[in-house]
Design a binder for these strands. Structure first.
Lengths: 127, 127
DNA sequence: CCTACATTTGCACCATGACGCAAGTACGCA
DNA sequence: TGCGTACTTGCGTCATGGTGCAAATGTAGG
């Protein structure tokens, strides 16, 4: 044993609320939505389409199973990336461009505020 | 069997290069870096710190094992989120604020361009 | 009501990834 | 060269998540 380790078995995966608005903007749920290549390709398909698409239409875009597409689209809707509109038995999905743009832009703003080159160099010690 | 499915067993997880700049900006690697709560808390710790931090300093911020912090920070550096600077046997990590801000801002721009409310409604059929 | 269609859900399988411990590496210093 | 410090890496374990198939659900139309 050559090293001191900290082992607090309770509360793994806690979110440390640290740096002002940055923490709330870095939502793991939103980023997880974009972290899978299949999901990204589905978003790309919807973007290329330029209109609302049904699950079946999106499924024609990619090689995975129909049910997989359904699950991915539902997850993306839950994450706030897509908007789901049900018409009869068909569900139309579309990209929430404006909301996403706003999220990423405010995240960029928050990052700029933290940037040591633009703001004065802070001396706050970590924890 | 009540449903037609497509099964192209070759090339799973292909990235469909669809909608102009959007696809290249939606890099799953970058988003995967932000998709883990522990990693996000480490980033928050570095942000709160406001300066370069060693692995040991960051490790004091959270409850996970030292080795876990080391791995997460290395991954974040590989993903382009952090900058690693080695001084002797100590590695200092800092957040690439400017680069990240630029990435997210250009992503927001690309999303705005795709937005049907700002640009003319397109009629392109998907696939 | 019955049937066809669009989508969702249950289940099993497998790959990936996060984690902790221990051992290994790299570096500075005496 | 030996020791201590700072970090990395190998390995086993466990949880999560992506996938495909089949069955179930929900919904319109005859």
């Amino acid at each position: 044993m050559t090293q001191v380790r900290k082992r607090r078995p309770s509360s793994p995966k806690q979110a440390a609320k640290c740096c002002g608005p940055l923490d709330s903007l870095l939502d793991p749920v939103l980023f997880k939505a974009f972290s899978d290549p299949t999901r990204v390709s589905l978003i790309g398909c919807l973007a290329k389409c330029g209109r609302e698409c049904s699950v079946g239409e999106v499924a024609e875009c990619c090689s995975v199973d129909f049910s997989v597409v359904s699950r991915h689209l539902a997850l993306l809707a839950r994450s706030g990336v897509l908007k789901a509109t049900k018409e009869g038995r068909t569900v139309f999905y579309s990209v929430r461009y404006a909301e996403l743009s706003r999220s990423f832009r405010s995240l960029a703003d928050a990052l700029d505020e933290c940037c040591p080159t633009t703001s004065a160099r802070r001396k706050v010690l970590c924890c």
